[in-house]
Design a protein around this nucleic acid. Structure first.
Lengths: 200, 200
DNA sequence: CGTTGACTTGACTGACCGGTCTAGTATTAT
DNA sequence: ATAATACTAGACCGGTCAGTCAAGTCAACG
């Protein structure tokens, strides 16, 4: 049955876009349904609650992310350190494209949801934390390789990878607050200067 | 009249705590009024709308911040680079204290509001941006001094200061998502490794 | 003493929220 | 053909939201 998956997919895609551009609390189910041309009853056939929709949206975005530009940035045959630049560039172009279309920077859906929901819903917090952990692992693998090839002096790869992810999220937060994607391009490359040494 | 200021102050203090611990959208005026032991009518005598209350809360927090631990961290006679550690420590102890009492990390009120409201309210976004600019200037002055005293090789102080602020916000975001203030202590000190060179 | 005006009280409004429910319509398997 | 199942339709529910309002209280001032 093609219809069923189509409706569900349409709900998730619409909700994802709306949550990303605004916020979880600011977007109502009715509004999502209208925008996705779906009735309330159909919505509740597929999702037991708004919260479960948000969980599905996170999974959906995390999937696209892992198989999309994050995979491109990290899985290519670039020298390890260049991948960090690639990742920053990808974030920049994505945010810039969104800003050009919508007029405002949406920022990172995961970061947005994390700050909005972490104190209200522990399951959602844990899920977002898992997404961040997965991203951190990509950084970590890159750093391990950089150390191995001698492109980088030995360091605490796990901690530095987390620091890099934090920096990227912070840069996007500041860029969103300025509503100016250029901030990402200005500050982004400094991600390579972050270092946390091994403790002896 | 002492009563008037007291009521207004109580509303702001209560709202600040609630917005910080939860979110703007999640906290209702009725709830704020109950918690501050104030009636709806009194609330609307002092504030024309919920949004104006939020604006006042930002001002209030920014004032306390500038005259509180941020001033302590930056205005003391510490060597410039030590001030960065002081700032990170202050953030850590603050978040840890809040987490110990409330059971969850509230994060940075400004960062929280920035991600929640930037795409919805441009005035609030601009105000939060101004708060961030003020904080950046503190970092900037510190870096200028560090360069002047030779503790740091010359660099783009403005850009690096912004990067440091972004990093701090990012670290707090990740710590909140993990609900673990220790993240701040682990990642925080690496703020000193961030560098953006002068462009020639 | 009387008036003014800042402040308080709490009932009230209309809109909208997430979620429910019953009555349907297609599609598939038997 | 029939029955079961998957999905759709949309009216409806109680509750809560931000915000309004008329009727006060009370301190200060003339």
């Amino acid at each position: 049955m093609a219809q069923e998956t189509d409706t569900r997919t349409r709900i998730i895609a619409t909700a994802r876009e709306m949550f990303h551009g605004r916020s979880y609390a600011d977007v109502g189910i009715q509004e999502i349904c209208e925008s996705a041309r779906v009735q309330k009853g159909s919505f509740y056939h597929f999702f037991p609650s708004k919260r479960d929709l948000a969980l599905a949206v996170i999974d959906d975005m995390a999937g696209d992310w892992a198989h999309g530009f994050v995979a491109e940035a990290f899985d290519q045959n670039l020298p390890p350190m260049d991948r960090l630049d690639y990742m920053v560039d990808a974030a920049y172009y994505w945010q810039k494209a969104a800003a050009d279309i919508e007029g405002r920077m949406p920022g990172c859906l995961f970061g947005n949801l994390a700050l909005e929901m972490s104190t209200r819903d522990d399951v959602m917090r844990a899920k977002l934390n898992y997404v961040f952990d997965t991203a951190r692992d990509k950084f970590r693998a890159t750093l391990d390789e950089a150390v191995q090839t001698g492109a980088m002096a030995p360091l605490d790869a796990e901690a530095t990878a987390t620091a890099m992810l934090a920096y990227l999220e912070g840069v996007i937060l500041l860029a969103k607050t300025r509503n100016d994607p250029e901030v990402i391009q200005t500050l982004g490359p400094a991600i390579k200067t972050l270092r946390i040494e091994l403790t002896h």
